[in-house]
Simulated assay, not measured.
Amino acid sequence: MIDTVIFDVDGTLVDSNYQHTLAWYRALRRSNITVPIWRIHRTIGMGGDKLITELAGADAEKAHGDDVRAAWDEEFEVLIDEIRPLPGTHELLMEVKHRGFRIVLASSGKAAHVERSLELIGARGLADAWTTSDDVSDSKPAPELVDTALQKVSRSSGIMVGDATWDVIAAAKLDVPTVALLTGGSSRAELRDAGAIAVFDSPQDLLDHLDITPLAYPSTQDAT
């Protein structure tokens, strides 16, 4: 009975994962913590409250966590103007909306960053709701963000569109299926192994194949 599409934002609708990765690398270096960039990239999509522990251990989080997150804010601001919409994003949102789905943009990013993404992809008039870091206390891979997104539209039945294994894992905890994209840098095999029901190259690729996915039409209405 799927009637709502929950779209992750960073890495799914806007091309931002590598800017996030570099900002975390530079922020960690400010506290004399060096983590290979490839390892940082594997954690993108996980919340910043958990990322430092994942990369450098609990002691690093305890000693430097707040400083690293503050440094990340500064480093990310230097890179934010480089972020652009991924090809096909606006058109995908328009078509999904046209077919009768409700749309929720699920982000645990800062409100200002989410607002900027809404403008970049022209989603303000298409999304029924969206989330920010103000809405959640426990980040992915915990399911709170997905649950909050559904609460924004009266706890309807949803399907997730995301780019990271963390999206798939978080949604699965609520029995919400995920269609995944390769745009975040995770491999097709990784996304499939995490539980994605389908994997496409990009928003444009998903749009081109919408009729062979559960996003063809809401389950509560007949296709026309």
Rank of each mutant, 00 (worst) to 15 (best):
I2R: 11
I2W: 09
T4C: 05
V5T: 03
I6W: 01
D8L: 04
T12P: 00
V14C: 03
S16M: 01
Q19Y: 14
T21N: 05
W24T: 10
R26H: 14
R29M: 05
T34F: 04
T34I: 07
P36T: 01
P36E: 02
I44V: 08
I44G: 01
G45C: 02
D49T: 12
K50N: 13
L51D: 03
D59F: 04
E61P: 02
H64R: 11
D66N: 11
D67Q: 13
D67C: 07
R69H: 12
W72S: 02
E77A: 15
D81G: 13
L86R: 03
M94C: 14
H98S: 11
H98K: 15
G100A: 08
F101D: 01
R102L: 12
R102K: 13
I103F: 01
V104K: 10
V104P: 04
G109N: 11
G109T: 10
K110C: 00
E115M: 11
L118A: 13
L120Y: 10
L120C: 13
G122M: 10
A123F: 11
R124F: 10
G125L: 10
D128C: 00
A129C: 07
T131V: 11
D135S: 06
V136A: 09
V136C: 12
D138S: 13
E144T: 08
T148K: 14
A149Y: 03
L150K: 12
K152S: 14
V153H: 01
S156Q: 07
S157L: 11
S157K: 14
G162H: 07
A164S: 15
T165M: 05
D167Q: 08
V168N: 09
I169E: 15
V176K: 06
T178K: 02
A180T: 09
L181C: 04
A189E: 15
A194I: 13
A194C: 12
A196C: 12
I197T: 09
V199N: 07
F200H: 04
D201K: 13
D205E: 07
L206C: 00
L207A: 03
L207R: 10
L207K: 05
L210C: 03
L215H: 02
L215Y: 04
L215R: 00
Y217H: 13
P218C: 01
D222K: 13
T224V: 00
